[in-house]
Design a protein around this nucleic acid. Structure first.
Length: 732
DNA sequence: CTTAGTTCAACC
DNA sequence: GTTGAACTAAGT
């Protein structure tokens, strides 16, 4: 039959910020476009890639107003019923337009209107048997490291894996190839083939946890696995994964970007005789799409990935692992604001499969769920090696001079560990040279023109940069207010701290880890490799140092500023501070060398800090939960934040006032605000918030369903950019 | 009467 | 979000 005959009606989700689907005529009456597949449609003047939500729809519109779809883009649907159901639930729960939610879930390459995806090439390397005469020379360190990885296991290693692990690898790989030790091969697809490896022996604690996990069987069983850093959580996951893989089911393993280290991937790759799909930031759009397709086809046994990987189609899914479940990066902070941990829980429930949430510092939400028996709670309170957790102590820096952010006692501790030949990690959660530039004579502080924030000094103080909008300029020679030339840098960031340490310890090799210093591709990987080899002794960095890495000779961790977490407007700040301190402390003394942790503070008596130091994260969490209960804050209350922003100062406030008026607040739903956002102006736009609070989700969510429809109709809605944030992570 | 700028509804 | 049509205010 030719395309003249037009078939029945389809409901299509289109990537536009409008709730609900749009109806189109199908191409063919006899063979319907399958649900979950992509179609090309005309939408107004534009051509967009939509997803079929339903077939044989009875449209509200007369048939002559419907347009036919222009093309089918898939042979097999991109979303299966399970995943489509999950996404429809998530779009509803987070009150986000379905078309945008589906587009967010799709790999970038599949959001484009291309029918036949030419297969991407996947390079790999494999070892070639040879006599010892060709081995690389002893000092060719990178070649030896690469060779080790390539020789482990029986299968070729993906080029992308080596890239993620080591960074710049072109030259050493070519050298190894010239020596005839390795050869380049084309991998059949985006998946890597793992090899079965021996499982390490379990400690008694681990065995207990594994037995509990496995004994629960196959149904929906959420488990919080709380294990101190170094307690061997990964091995516990592995044992359960082995069971699931043996039953020919797939495993979805989620990790935050920063925790998704090559070590983790390599561990799984050398452990399971299984095909593994890896989704991390270094993979190209084409590779991601190939992993997606392989997972959908059931070819991938394990999928490891970050937040968005929670939406990978896996027809044989049998287990979900969420590592570092407390990590804030699981919450998407713009557009479709979903929380991957919570979506993963829903997915496990929908599929009726077990899910394990692992962390050394569980989110208060998860602890609360464990407390009320919604999660099983397994604990690994000791390190697998038997090494003691390092003591955490404070240095009171009130009225002490600071040199580049460092007090004298702190410098002395650092020196002691460096002299002993060990590694030291200095942690400061602020990048750049200094957080502000001030005039010594009149007190002027260099402001950003477009944000309500001071500019940050960079380039040793030569440049000014805004961390909120990206604006940058050279540092002025004199104060624009009073003309004084006495301009001084206030406070210290990673750059300044690193500089101070370099001049204090000129013979020690130092590496800086922050977004600026590792921006270049492969730089982070090569710097980490130098730390692992012991070449780098002193590490200075932001929170990207906090997790995942395991350095044998690291014995001292210095945290330069914990006070930000004690007095923030954000009610979660203290929780984040405690998690961060506990996580960085876990970096120290992981092997036989005892470690120690020092915190600089101006508030050594602060009750929450005191709790953390005397009783550890658990005691802190109990105290913090009691405070949350008192204030009816999450997890004892539920929040929804309505955000609005505009070029002018009045519109956001006006819109939110209209919005507030349409909420019939009662004793069960409270409306807080509207108020200007903590940083009212950002990137030239004025921002305001309206916070809804309820003691029950059952009351809040129906109200939100109604509210979202009302909001779109408000007269002020078109003057602002607004968005609903369900379960907001930060209120800033 | 033109033109640039703003508002508004539809988008299937 | 994007688009075009309807509307408004100033310009020749």
């Amino acid at each position: 039959m030719s395309g003249v005959e037009i078939g029945p009606t389809l409901r299509v989700a289109v990537p536009v910020p409008l709730y609900g689907g749009f109806d189109y005529l199908d191409l063919d009456a006899t063979d319907a476009t399958p649900i979950g597949s992509r179609v090309l449609v005309r939408f107004g003047k534009r051509r967009l890639v939509g997803v079929v939500l339903e077939t044989e729809v009875k449209s509200d519109l007369p048939r002559e107003r419907l347009r036919p779809i222009e093309a089918r883009l898939d042979d097999a649907p991109v979303f299966d019923d399970e995943l489509l159901g999950l996404l429809r639930w998530a779009a509803g729960y987070y009150h986000h337009p379905i078309g945008e939610a589906l587009a967010t879930a799709l790999p970038v390459a599949l959001r484009r209107a291309k029918t036949d995806q030419t297969p991407n090439r996947h390079r790999g390397w494999q070892a070639v048997p040879s006599d010892t005469a060709n081995e690389p020379v002893a000092h060719a360190k990178r070649q030896h490291e690469l060779l080790d990885v390539i020789r482990t296991g029986v299968h070729p290693v993906a080029h992308s894996h080596l890239l993620a692990r080591f960074g710049s690898i072109h030259a050493p790989l070519k050298a190894l190839e010239r020596r005839g030790l390795i050869e380049e091969v084309d991998l059949p697809g985006a998946l890597e083939q793992g090899s079965a490896g021996t499982a390490p022996a379990l400690t008694d604690m681990q065995r207990e946890a594994v037995e509990q996990l496995i004994s629960r069987g196959e149904g929906f069983h959420p488990t919080l696995l709380e294990g101190v850093t170094g307690s061997g959580k990964t091995e516990v996951y592995c044992r359960q994964m082995a069971e699931v893989l043996a039953a020919n089911r797939q495993v979805l393993f989620l990790a935050p970007e920063i925790g998704l280290t090559p070590q983790l991937i390599e561990r799984l790759r050398t452990r399971f005789d299984a095909s593994i799909g890896v989704l991390h930031s270094q993979r190209s759009d084409g590779e991601r799409a190939d992993v997606w397709r392989a997972a959908r086809a059931g070819d991938a046994d394990i999928v490891i990935g970050t937040r968005s990987a929670v939406f990978t189609p896996m027809p044989r899914l049998g287990l979900i692992v969420v590592d570092e479940e407390h990590d804030g990066s699981y919450k998407q902070q713009d557009g479709f604001r979903y929380h991957a941990r919570d979506v993963a829980l829903r997915r496990a429930q929908q599929c009726d499969i077990p899910i394990v949430l692992g962390s050394a510092t569980p989110a208060l939400e998860s602890l609360h769920n464990a407390d009320r028996s919604r999660f099983a709670h397994l604990k690994l309170p000791e390190r697998a090696t038997g090494a003691a957790m390092p003591p955490v102590r404070v240095i009171d820096i009130r009225s002490r001079p600071l040199l580049g952010g460092l007090s004298d006692p702190m410098l002395a501790h650092i020196e002691r560990h460096l002299t002993a030949g060990n590694q030291v990690m200095v942690f400061i959660n602020r990048r750049g040279y200094a957080p502000a530039l001030s005039c010594h004579d009149c007190g002027w502080i260099a402001p950003c023109e477009r944000c309500d924030a001071p500019l940050t000094l960079h380039g040793g103080g030569a440049r000014l940069q805004c961390h909120h909008c990206g604006a940058h300029q050279n540092t002025p020679a004199q104060c624009p207010g009073c003309g004084s030339k006495q301009l001084i840098a206030l406070g210290a960031g990673t750059e300044r701290v690193a500089g101070a340490l370099r001049s204090r310890f000129p013979d020690v090799r130092l590496a800086r880890f922050d977004r600026d210093s590792v921006a270049r591709k492969g730089r982070l990987e090569s710097q980490l490799a130098d730390v692992a080899s012991g070449e780098t002794q002193l590490l200075v960095g932001t929170q990207m140092l906090a997790k995942g890495h395991d350095f044998a000779r690291l014995t001292c961790v210095a945290v330069l500023d914990v006070d930000g977490g004690l007095f923030s407007a954000d009610f979660r700040a203290a929780e984040h501070m405690a998690q961060l301190v506990t996580q960085v402390a876990g970096r120290a003394g992981r092997s036989d060398l005892p470690g120690e942790v020092w915190l600089q503070t101006r508030h050594p008596e602060h009750p929450l800090l005191h709790r953390l130091l005397s009783g550890g994260y658990d005691a802190f969490a109990r105290a913090a939960l009691a405070e949350r209960r008192e204030a009816a804050l999450p997890p004892f209350g539920y929040l929804c934040l309505l955000r609005a922003e505009a070029q002018d100062i009045q519109s956001p406030q006006a819109f939110l006032e209209q919005a507030a008026a349409t909420i019939h607040s009662d004793e069960q739903i409270a409306c807080w605000g509207p108020v200007p956002a903590p940083m009212q102006r950002r990137a030239g736009r004025f921002r305001a918030h309206l916070l809804l609070h309820s003691s029950t989700r059952a009351r809040l969510h129906p109200a939100l369903d109604h509210w979202q429809r009302v909001l779109a109709e408000l007269p002020g809605a078109r003057r602002v950019r607004w968005s609903i944030d369900v379960d907001p992570q930060d209120l800033l």
